[in-house]
Structure formats: structure tokens, C-alpha cells
Simulated scan of single mutants.
Amino acid sequence: MGRYRPPRAKGSPYITPEGEAALRAELQALWKEERPVVTAAVQAAAGNGDRSENGDYIYGKKRLREIDSRVRFLRKRLEELTVVRDPPSDRGKAYFGAWVDLENPDGERVTWRVVGPDEFDLQAGKLSCDSPLGRALLGKPIDSEITIDSPSGDQYWYLLDVRYQPPA
């Protein structure tokens, strides 16, 4: 049995201005701050003699490969992303970048922001536009009922409000 895994489908090429700034800050921190420190540590460890049993050297080289891989990914991804800066003209519907208020049949209310796959963070209330709920929300007007087919059965949500400015 091989280790082959088919490539993952690319996420949507959209990002909010805040998400782009965060990716650029991560790229800057990796390239200008962390990589020089790790490179200096590897260089110092290389001077200690036998590299085959030198943990600092081995793990430093591993970390350099991880940093270089992430830097390559970020540079390539930032080139292909489209920054969505302007809200749509129809502000009564949920589109990319919107803050949406939802309610389920149990009365539980949640607020999500529909963002790109590179910046989603459920703990921070950011929902990917590629997720099942994100896809179901796009283009829906206020007062719509949204149905999501999930492994545990259908989930129902009611779209209460759509805003294109952060909640106060």
C-alpha cells in the first residue's frame, strides 16, 4: 500500500483585507525574524563536530525546511488571492465578508463572518466560505431558512441579519 494521497482541492481565492495583512505579517515574521535566528543556531551547531548525532543541528535543519516550505506556500498563495475590499451593492444578502446572525430551531444564536479558507477561525467567529454552512449562506437574503446536510442529519438555521461592518 502506497502513501499516495490525491491533492486537496484549492480553496476559494478570496480573502479580506485583514486576512491578507495577517498572511503578509506571518510571511514577514518567518522570513525576517525566525529564519535568521534558526540559521544562526544551525550554523553554531554545525561547528560542534559530528552532525549525525547533533540534535541541535538535526532539529534546526528540520525547522528550516518547515519555514522554507511555509514561506514558499505563502508567497505563492498571496500572488493568487483576490482581496475583497468593497461590500456588495445589495446589502440585504449574505456575501463574502459579511457578518451574519443565525438562529437554530433551539433558539441558539450565533454570529459568523464569512471569510476565505486561508483565514477562517471558528474560535474567532470566522467561517470559511468553502464550508457547508458558508456555501449555503452565500447569496441568501435576510429571513431565509438555511438547510445543511450533515453526517448527523439535516441542520436548520434562520438568517436573522447581515452586516458589512463589524458588530459594535
Results as ranks from 00 to 15, higher is better:
130 D>T: 04
112 W>Q: 00
19 G>A: 08
18 E>R: 12
60 G>V: 04
48 N>S: 13
109 R>N: 09
125 G>I: 00
11 G>K: 07
36 P>M: 12
128 S>I: 03
116 G>Q: 02
117 P>W: 00
79 E>T: 07
55 G>F: 14
82 T>R: 13
105 P>Y: 04
34 E>L: 14
116 G>D: 00
31 W>I: 14
90 D>W: 08
114 V>I: 13
48 N>D: 11
130 D>H: 05
43 Q>K: 15
77 R>Q: 12
93 K>I: 12
50 D>C: 10
118 D>P: 01
78 L>I: 05
107 G>M: 08
51 R>G: 09
103 E>S: 09
112 W>A: 01
125 G>L: 05
56 D>P: 06
117 P>C: 05
84 V>C: 01
133 L>Q: 04
28 Q>A: 15
60 G>M: 03
106 D>Q: 13
96 F>T: 02
122 L>D: 06
91 R>V: 13
72 R>P: 01
51 R>P: 04
127 L>T: 02
88 P>W: 07
37 V>Q: 14
93 K>H: 10
102 L>A: 04
37 V>P: 01
74 L>M: 07
84 V>A: 00
94 A>N: 07
39 T>Q: 14
57 Y>C: 08
66 E>Q: 13
13 P>A: 10
83 V>R: 05
51 R>M: 11
42 V>N: 00
79 E>L: 11
57 Y>R: 09
34 E>V: 11
23 L>H: 09
57 Y>P: 05
122 L>W: 09
57 Y>S: 06
38 V>Q: 11
107 G>N: 06
39 T>P: 06
114 V>E: 00
26 E>V: 06
27 L>C: 07
123 Q>P: 03
114 V>K: 01
41 A>C: 09
90 D>Q: 10
15 I>K: 03
81 L>D: 00
126 K>T: 06
132 P>R: 12
69 S>E: 14
105 P>S: 03
82 T>W: 08
33 E>T: 13
115 V>Y: 02
78 L>S: 03
81 L>N: 00
105 P>M: 03
111 T>C: 12
49 G>H: 01
35 R>G: 05
71 V>P: 03
126 K>F: 13
64 L>N: 05
61 K>Q: 13
118 D>G: 04
46 A>W: 05
89 S>C: 06
23 L>V: 03
93 K>E: 07
30 L>G: 07
101 D>W: 13
18 E>C: 05
109 R>F: 08
31 W>Q: 15
130 D>L: 08
99 W>S: 08
16 T>V: 01
132 P>G: 09
110 V>P: 02
42 V>Q: 02
104 N>C: 11
52 S>E: 08
33 E>G: 13
115 V>W: 02
101 D>Q: 14
38 V>T: 14
118 D>S: 07
88 P>C: 09
83 V>Q: 03
